[in-house]
Design a protein around this nucleic acid. Structure first.
Lengths: 234, 234
DNA sequence: CCCAGTAATAAGTATATACTTAATCATTCC
DNA sequence: GGAATGATTAAGTATATACTTATTACTGGG
């Protein structure tokens, strides 16, 4: 039940930083001195310091010591969960609806990403994710059947392709890009909003060893993300 | 120059996961056995494993051992850098332009966030961040003078408030939310786009021990973020 | 047969110790 | 004066060892 020592050291140091006791660029004592101050081993201080450095609170350089980092260098953890989980977290009822499933020649950008030969087809899925009686996300996805031939057998009628892909394709690199677009006629119809309504668009490209697996275009009618940096460390 | 041992262990294990050799849910050998396999100390394996767990590749439970994690549990690191850095990274010339600076009674939402008394004023800044000859970001910001009284003396004529705040307010919690909006008349004028153009809106609220410091509304005409999960571990 | 108690196990924490490496400072020599 | 040289320092890596704790699996008593 008692908090690990290295975490106690970490929060003590973090408090000094947060309170402004130690300002940006200020040096911290070296590991050995802190170990003496806290009455613990240097490795324990080292672990606390390494985590603070990993989290971007401090910057460490050999010989030069440790300093409070400039805020600019920090990042934000954005968790992009599965749609159904996202919806569940909002206390809404999730419903999946398939709109289209076809094998077709994809648009040029996708052909390039998949490295397909001219005229070669890929699997095209359009579907909707509902939260209660509102459309939460409109999904337009292409799946590379060269990389994932098993996908050709899947109807994706009762659950989304993302769900299946997550479980059947080994760990892969995922690129996201976020942008804003105005709803065109198809978007407006699919999302039940007016043409010209501002949509949040999340593009997702999944690449594994076998090549580019899938390209998805996910559109949301409203706000999507709420992020928070500086998660309170335990 | 040679790679640390714990990292070598880490990438070896990661390769087995990535390649699909170990599928989701598959158990990994225990630390002691792996230590023997790699001919190193258990702590070295432990460190590699802990990092893999921190990065979301594996899940560890006492007594139950370590298993390859389900992909769903992973997050994405979104780095929201300073605008000027962001623009510099795109090989464009950054220019700052102040549009408005006034002390005024903020809108209700901001009054609540700042916990201001009725009629109490805050500092209001509107400014533009240019990338070459295009407006990259339109910023509308309120600063709580109760929490940061020094800000009242700043003209913010040649550099943005974010720049100054980052260096003068100790580490604080930052909340972000991303949404899409249509440009209203003011947005259209400020960003030099047509009314109704889809904008990516980033809301940013900064809270420190002293209370809510600032609320900013940052609007972009095009795409803003490009994210990537699974950064190649070194 | 089921539940409680317990033993076994694997992750996790903590310490001492030793060595490596990068960076900085001071010195020396050209 | 300035560049090469070497000493020093502090972070970083690696290992052995020991103990703690959560959890599973087993086992004996009701």
């Amino acid at each position: 039940m008692t908090k690990p020592l290295y975490k106690a050291v970490k929060t003590t140091l973090l408090d000094r930083i947060r309170s402004g006791d130690l300002a940006f660029g200020d040096p911290l004592p070296n590991d050995a001195d802190l170990a003496e101050e806290f009455g613990c081993a240097r490795l324990t201080v080292y672990r606390a310091m390494r985590e603070l450095a990993d989290e971007g609170y401090v910057e460490r350089r050999r010989r030069a010591g440790t300093r409070v980092a400039t805020r600019a260098s920090r990042g934000v953890q954005l968790s992009i969960a599965r749609v159904d989980e996202e919806i569940f977290a909002r206390n809404a009822v999730y419903r999946y609806e398939r709109l289209l499933r076809e094998k077709a020649v994809p648009p040029a950008a996708v052909v390039t990403a998949f490295a397909l030969k001219a005229g070669q087809k890929a699997l095209h899925i359009r579907c909707r994710h509902w939260a209660d009686d509102r459309v939460f996300q409109l999904e337009d996805r292409w799946i590379n059947l060269e990389a994932v031939p098993e996908a050709a057998e899947r109807p994706f009628l009762h659950y989304g392709p993302n769900h299946w892909l997550l479980e059947h394709v080994p760990f892969s690199e995922v690129h996201h890009d976020i942008s804003a677009v105005c709803a065109d006629a198809a978007d407006a119809e699919g999302l039940k909003v007016a043409v010209g309504h501002a949509l949040l668009r999340l593009g997702r490209t999944t690449v594994s060893k076998a090549g580019c697996i899938t390209v998805a275009d996910l559109k949301h009618p409203g706000e999507l993300f709420s992020l928070c940096s500086d998660p309170q460390p335990a």
